[in-house]
């Protein structure tokens, strides 16, 4: 898995500071094709900031991010173009409230990828069916439950046929009984070999689904391992103490 041609995102000496407050301190890592990487850590550890730097929603203070071989931190890079291939799912869903579900799913493929209405809608309906929401295509987001909205948000990102999916605490704003339905969608995505980077507090999901777990604390990658080793044999004291609190 670790030969270079399979690297989809390469993070090189990433630094992010808000004023004097250094949130990410010189982070380097590779995300490989088909990887399901879970990023965990205490709140304020910089894990969301790390994820948001990957598609430049946060502008890095220093370092480079390469996406499919292109340095997207370069001033001349066409960031909008690259973002089309990096789907993102937010904690607060962020569906467009003034559009129907179907329109939420088709607006970007039609305007950005030149898809015809028929083509975009056919694909959107197919994807919506896969998450069990085909009958809600004419509803507005506010008529859906949180779990349903988040499933639609995942589909919205998928309709752009991205090469990688970024999840920013996708279940943190959900009622407990709705967490499962969203995790199931993510699990089936992982089974289809979608490359995913997931910031999450769901230790069960990280343990079962991920190929790799990164533990972030105080802006550093403290430890990184495949899930079984990560949970059963933590090496650093910081991870040990974190796991003792959350497990």
């Amino acid at each position: 898995m670790s030969d270079n041609s399979n690297v989809i995102i390469k993070v090189e000496n990433l630094v992010k500071a808000f004023g004097d407050n250094v949130v990410l301190n010189d982070i380097s890592t590779n995300i490989y094709k088909g990887d399901v990487v879970c990023v965990i850590g205490p709140s304020g550890s910089g894990k969301s900031t790390f994820l948001r730097c990957l598609n430049l929603l946060e502008k890095p203070t220093g370092g480079h991010i390469y996406f499919e071989g292109n340095d997207i931190t370069d001033k001349r890079a066409d960031v909008d173009k690259h973002r089309q291939k990096m789907g993102m799912v937010f904690q607060q869903f962020n569906l467009f409230p003034h559009m129907t579900i179907l329109r939420n799913l088709t607006v970007a493929p039609m305007k950005l990828q030149g898809k015809s209405k028929e083509e975009a809608e056919a694909y959107a309906m197919e994807m919506l069916g896969k998450v069990g929401l085909a009958d809600r295509s004419d509803s507005y987001p506010s008529q859906l439950s949180g779990g349903q909205q988040q499933r639609v948000a995942i589909v919205r990102a998928l309709c752009m046929k991205p090469d990688v999916m970024l999840f920013d605490e996708p279940t943190s704003a959900l009622d407990p009984e709705m967490v499962g339905e969203v995790l199931n969608v993510m699990r089936s995505l992982a089974e289809q070999r979608m490359t995913m980077v997931v910031v999450t507090h769901e230790m069960g999901f990280a343990r079962e689904v991920s190929s790799r777990i990164m533990f972030l604390d105080g802006g550093d990658f403290v430890e990184e391992n495949e899930p079984r080793e990560f949970f059963t044999n933590p090496k650093s004291d910081r991870l040990k103490s974190f796991l003792s609190k959350v497990l």
């Binding site: 929603l57 909008d80 973002r83 789907g87 962020n94 467009f96 607006v107 305007k111 950005l112 752009m160």
Partner: peptide, 27 residues
């Protein structure tokens, strides 16, 4: 209009102007 709407638009690949016109302004 919540900040998240802007970010959702940009994350899909819309430019600043497209995000403003398609997503922010109507709301």
């Amino acid at each position: 209009v919540p900040r998240g709407q802007f970010e959702a638009g940009r994350s899909l690949g819309f430019s600043y102007t497209q995000t403003m016109v398609t997503i922010i302004m109507p709301q």
